[in-house]
Design a protein around this nucleic acid. Structure first.
Lengths: 224, 224
DNA sequence: ACAAAAGTGTTTTCTATACACCCATGG
DNA sequence: CCATGGGTGTATAGAAAACACTTTTGT
């Protein structure tokens, strides 16, 4: 029996800047769904593993430098691709704000960041994939410190707070939030300060990842 | 460019009986890894989605009736299968105790339940898959009520407690555990009692799944 | 001087934990 | 009558939540 199933990877890449969570989309150059927006992705080659395939497609189509990558889910419905039976392994990625720069691409006419609250129509079943990715992101930032992967290396505390507020779509008490994060001892407070326009300048913090892994080994649990 | 990647599914099916968590394995009938124990699974056919493929393989190879099924992870390392490039979508399943009956199979010489603490050598990368599945099971029973899927419809409370004790590998205070579960209001206490040998007879409980979904919608969170 | 954002403590409420004795049955 | 497992309540400690004013800067 001949196996005609084809395998692709797709990437849901999130970025964050000043209160807005965005996702990276590419405009399709070819049929099917020519000129529709889609998640970056493509066929897996025989000599590369899945992560490599995602990284290759992302670099070919968008030039974006990915900072965190994990597998999301595999979608295998019969009719999800009009070209035939195509199963896709979706990944979930995060980039830092300075990776927002976009470069010309080979496989896509255009690449653009879209606010996750203002999405265009999407090709294939990408709307469903994106929905699941957003839910995963929302769930995961509450029990793993992946929010920092969306922020610059040095950030004012209010950036972190705004990220959680906008991602979880609810108000957060600034004092309680600071208390909780501080108690985890995973942030270093730097000497530097930034003043962004008006208002009191803010201290900068950085996420101490190795300290986090150390504490995690000792049984400390990150939870918001 | 020709795509020669093949796609399989594998199932990690857990069962539970009197303190022991077991996993269902089949002895391979053909090369590669002939006569080694492996997770049930096989090639996905072009006209079936992934869940169907898992269910078909399980019924062909083991005859076990699955009670809960969710996707676990997709494994795509280059060298994971000596037959060439084979990517597998692993699933995670739970069966009730009375589904422990095994039937003769077509693809496997033997099918057997193995205590997860006394596993044989496994074919392919199935040891790695099983490890991830066990971690997922341990993690998931603490924030979703999937433990009930491993118990009979009616069960004494101590069964639930023993399940958690053996799965999480730590002592649980009986009174506090009862208090927590009771506060969720997801169990119905039945009139019936069972006495299993010596000791005071135990009331039977049943998991009220629709009430759970109702409460979940209202924001109640299951957590152990 | 005022608008804007940063920074900071205390009290109250709720939840988690620790802990030990009586009950109903079978042998 | 005793061995076995089932069933139950209270007190304490720790964590989460509620809550408002002062500080520093730019304009």
């Amino acid at each position: 029996m001949k196996n005609k199933i084809k395998l692709t990877v797709d990437a849901v890449v999130f970025g964050y800047e000043s209160g807005d969570v965005s996702v990276l989309l590419v405009k399709r150059k070819y049929e099917p769904y020519k000129d529709a927006w889609a998640l970056p992705g493509g066929f897996v080659q025989e000599n590369e593993n899945l992560e490599r395939a995602v990284e290759r497609e992302l670099s070919e189509e968008t030039g974006v430098k990915i900072n965190y990558l994990e597998q999301l889910y595999t979608f295998g419905d019969l009719a999800r691709d009009p070209r035939g039976r195509v199963v896709t392994v979706a990944y979930f990625g995060l980039v830092k704000p300075n990776a927002f720069k976009l470069t010309a691409s080979t496989d896509a006419k255009e690449t653009e960041w879209f606010n996750i609250k203002k999405l265009p129509k999407l090709a294939f079943d990408h709307k469903k994939i994106l929905k699941i990715a957003i839910e995963r992101l929302q769930g995961k930032i509450t029990y793993e410190p992946i929010g920092f992967e969306l922020l610059d290396k040095k950030f004012p505390f209010s950036d972190l707070e705004k990220l959680y507020t906008s991602l979880l779509d609810r108000e957060i008490d600034r004092r309680n939030f600071k208390k909780k994060i501080s108690s985890l001892k995973i942030l270093d407070e730097l000497e530097e300060k930034v003043s962004v326009g008006r208002g009191r300048p803010a201290s900068l913090f950085s996420f101490n990842k190795s300290r986090y892994f150390q504490l995690k080994k000792e049984g400390i649990i990150f939870e918001i």
